[in-house]
Amino acid sequence: MKITGLILLFSLGGLLFYGAIDFPSWGDPNSPASSHLSPYYIEHTMEDTSVPNVVTSILADYRGYDTMFETIVIFTAGIACIFLLRTFKSSIPESRMYRHIPTGITLRIEKGGKVPDHSDHFERIDSVWIPYDLVIRTTCRMVIPFIQVFAFYVIAHGHYSPGGGFQGGVILGASFVLFALGFNLRLAIRQMSEKITVFMCALGVFIYAGTGILCMVFKSNFLDYSALASLFATDPITARSYGILIVEIGVGIAVMGVMILLYYNLASGGKHKEGL
């Protein structure tokens, strides 16, 4: 088995090397990949959509139908992760750990025991307790707002600089992941609950597809944003630029929800109680 695999690998690699000799050399402007379709995109993106970043205009306008289904694939992956891992009832009797803050004593309360009230004296801790770390918590508290503002900038400024919905959504999700890492998962879930996260995944896809259907309501093709000109009270070219922005916001919300959902499920093993 091992030898068969190695022989297969080396023969395939040899064939690919033989094929690679005939490829166009690096940076050839006349290579087939850059001589048919892409010159049209580069030369016409300003007059069609008035978006200087060609990647954004292709992503959300020329190939918007493709990107819509990529977003749906991401949404499906998030939902699949819930179906695979999420467990709602734990079969093992659950014991809770509390810490008395003034004395530092840890209490372990078995199932059915009396749970202390929510007060300043007791805090609930994980079974693997990590001591309070001033440096990490303060750094997280200070850095997270800047990360989120940067993520909004990336989403909104994707027309003129590298960026867009995918990157901004991932950065926005990463800020919540950083919160869950720096503090603990239970607190993060209290801030950003599972219901809101799933709703956000669906909302992002809904915004994207809804924009397309809105274009159909205005008697044009699916995802042809120039039909929205009367809605935004602008000319059709600027309307396409606005349409790209709306779609990018939808992508950002969906990607952010899926990233948070994946982290919650993977870090807690589906229980949503104790995390990394």
């Binding site: 990463a174 890492l181 994946l262 982290y263």
Partner: peptide, 9 residues
């Protein structure tokens, strides 16, 4: 960023 966190978890 994210994929390293997912792997570690």
């Amino acid at each position: 960023g994210i994929s390293t966190v997912l792997f570690v978890s």
